[in-house]
Nucleic acid binder design. Sequence first.
DNA 1: ACTGACATACCGACTGGTTGGTATGTCAGA
DNA 2: TCTGACATACCAACCAGTCGGTATGTCAGT
Lengths: 214, 214
Amino acid sequence: MIPNRPFRPAPVTARDKLLEAAVKLVRTNGYAATSVDELCREAGVTKGAFFHHFPTKEALGVASAEYWSASTSGFFAAAPYHHHADPVDRVLGYIDFRVALIGGPVEGFSCVAGTMVQEAFRSSAAIRVACEASIMGNCAALEDDIAQAMAQRGVTGTSAASFARHIQAVIQGSFVLAKTQEPAEAAELAREQLGHLRRYFAMLFKEDTEETMQ
Amino acid sequence: MIPNRPFRPAPVTARDKLLEAAVKLVRTNGYAATSVDELCREAGVTKGAFFHHFPTKEALGVASAEYWSASTSGFFAAAPYHHHADPVDRVLGYIDFRVALIGGPVEGFSCVAGTMVQEAFRSSAAIRVACEASIMGNCAALEDDIAQAMAQRGVTGTSAASFARHIQAVIQGSFVLAKTQEPAEAAELAREQLGHLRRYFAMLFKEDTEETMQ
DNA sequence: ACTGACATACCGACTGGTTGGTATGTCAGA
DNA sequence: TCTGACATACCAACCAGTCGGTATGTCAGT
């Protein structure tokens, strides 16, 4: 499961409690179906606190995408797959790390930005842009390793950025498919899909070296 | 663009008009953000007509997933890629056909079932199941061709069903990523992602034959 | 041919609850 | 005394869903 706030103390201010609540409720019920009252109840704060910190519900949506970005980017930056010497191992290590995070009900491993942008891409430009920044920011963190892997194995025909986006696309798609399943089977389906992603990259980067992995 | 009702006359009954409206509005604004009044306005029918044909809004959601399934499955069944002799060409032809359908704003090529299940997977079991049937039904239509392609090229290690699900996962994921973009760039991003999917299958099925495609 | 019972397909005013948002008040700490 | 961080009460708009009514058949019985 991807934690909401992996490297910070428990939320104390009303603002942080509301962001925590937003992540949980948006993942579970979506953005539109989550009311401000529900958010306040979940966070244990009053409506006055809500509108003290956020001018509108939309602003909370934007802030929660940014909050999600900050949480996850910190979490992935500290993950162990970065220590591999071979850039190919770092890329495959990222995928393996993502697979390891998948388990339990979908709302425990799905993506806030992906969920929110599906609903709000047309009705709120601010939320759309915040979700774009979150998802594409995640891509950017992979680009260097992919570029190095491509250079080392002589992979051409597309860009590192495009490959990075593909990783995100498969992850997001696996969440959508997982949501069609009953809770008990959701995680397995999502993991299966990342397996295909891994195979794609393994095939691309296995050219002139056989079992270089350490 | 994937048409809503490709092989049928223009809707005449209030029920069909409401299903048309549901497909359009759910694709654009999502399920929860689409009100019954809005649906009626878009369809040009009254609230009485709505609740005459559907007991609840949820029932319209379920019916629109089924309606979407019926429309798209008929549309794909009639597509020309089925005529290829080589099963590999049929699988790649399906992907190429999907790429050709992508263009214009996201709500013109995105998937109703994928959008709806993201929002309603936890709050409505009936909608979740209807969306599962729609998406997995699309997978089932591909399974035979994939199984034949696997047998012919000696691909092992996973099942035809799993490959079929991967096609759907990448398609759904490409829609999520496309929704993060401005309207002008959305289609290009989605096509790019299906390009990776095509490359994955081309690599898998290119083993012991070089340029068998006709 | 005509009737009356019944069915289908709608119409639109209405309701009770919920929505996002506001106005005003409180109160600890600087 | 003044500010930032809340709390409480409230509001108009909107929500899904209801209900009594109408228009238009259909069809068995006479």
